[in-house]
Design a protein around this nucleic acid. Structure first.
Lengths: 216, 216
DNA sequence: CGGTAATCTAGAACAAGTTTCAGACTTGAT
DNA sequence: ATCAAGTCTGAAACTTGTTCTAGATTACCG
């Protein structure tokens, strides 16, 4: 009945690592998806959010505009997916060289600063991804949540926690809030790199507050 | 030489309270500006960010589209200005009934929760303003900075501080980061009201950390 | 194989933000 | 009162995200 192995509604799912969603993709479809994400990241690296124009992405990835929209129902979806993709990279990289700090707070701050430095190397890409992330509305919630969970996983990794308490989870959320918002102020030129560093270090002190004695 | 009392480039400035910018506005211009902001807030209250359509704003405020763009060079500028406007209100309101908490942290948390409840009454308006704020790029930096300063003033008021230390300023920045980001997650349905409350209370604990000995 | 349903393509069409332009209107100065 | 310069208006044009359509392709089932 179907054609290229059905892809029910939107092929927004799955892929290499962690996206156990609805439908498996054909190899050609997987290739298309990858081409699209690659084109997206490339255009974003050049000129940020505005440079990622749907027609251009379609052309660069040799896919019809309609197809692009079948895979990613909006520009925001596309950029959030691009961010998921990049985050996976980063998490992998971080796993290999875990932070060295003595306290959880230090390790988290170090991890975030490492990520920050990576973003500084591709400020336009960072701009596109972060702007998309914060501009996303309800229709993108599932994808944004994925990004959020991935980020949480990275932070918890750095803390070395298996079973965080609700209190600690709240602290982690606050750290992520700060992380996102600080990135935005940096990207829009309203805060210096030094200031972002200070703010990250400041918020990480919250961790100590939630780790009084025995992490039972 | 000029006409309606020159307004050099953009009439983006000034107004009632705090915007000591370049050019004074004619009464008619002041009235136009006010009509525009009113229309903006009204449309935003109805349907949020998307409902604020420039053509509609122009029509509602009985101003030509070109004029609207002369006053506010982009939709984002318009919405950020709308936010400045609303913030002034709020700051005024808060001044009248200062928070009651014993510690600075409590007072700040109470203040922010009060603001949060106000936003809950107009979720669409909140959506429009916050989305605009975080989506703003460099071209809107001055205006966004104003909003940021206004927010800082509110928080410092709640803390009862005259001369904050750099450390405390960083804590305040982190609080604002959390505030913005938490609002976004709430607006996009990814966090509950309760969670926002918890996160605000959590981040406010940072204040105690920066207030070593004698507070008052 | 052949059939059929889903997918992909090319391109037009639409929507909303932004720009542009000619002409009418105001303002402050002479 | 007149005038020069800046402002406002109305309307069209342009840009980019998004939707739609008709026809060509592809995948899988029997």
């Amino acid at each position: 009945m179907p054609a290229e192995t059905r892809v029910n509604k939107v092929a927004k799912v799955d892929a290499s690592s962690a996206r156990p969603d609805s439908a498996p993709l054909t190899e050609r479809q997987e290739a298309r998806r990858r081409r699209i994400l690659h084109a997206s990241a490339q255009l974003a690296s050049r000129g940020g959010f505005d440079a990622v124009q749907m027609r251009e992405v379609a052309e660069s990835s040799q896919v019809a505009l309609g197809t692009l929209y079948r895979y990613f129902p909006s520009k925001i979806h596309l950029l959030v997916a691009t961010m998921q993709d990049q985050l996976e990279h980063m998490h992998g990289t971080l796993r290999k060289k875990p932070p060295q700090g003595d306290t959880a707070a230090e390790r988290v701050a170090e991890t975030l600063m490492r990520a920050f430095r990576a973003l500084q190397r591709e400020p336009h890409l960072a701009d596109a991804m972060v702007r998309a992330l914060t501009f996303a509305d309800r229709s993108v919630s599932p994808e944004v949540d994925q990004v959020s969970h991935q980020t949480t996983a990275i932070v918890l990794d750095a803390m070395g926690l298996e079973n965080p308490t609700p209190e600690q989870l709240s602290a982690v959320r606050v750290i992520e809030h700060t992380w996102h918002s600080a990135l935005i102020t940096w990207l829009s030129g309203r805060a210096s790199i030094a200031q972002v560093k200070i703010d990250i270090e400041t918020v990480c002190r919250l961790i100590d507050l939630t780790e009084p004695k025995e992490p039972r």
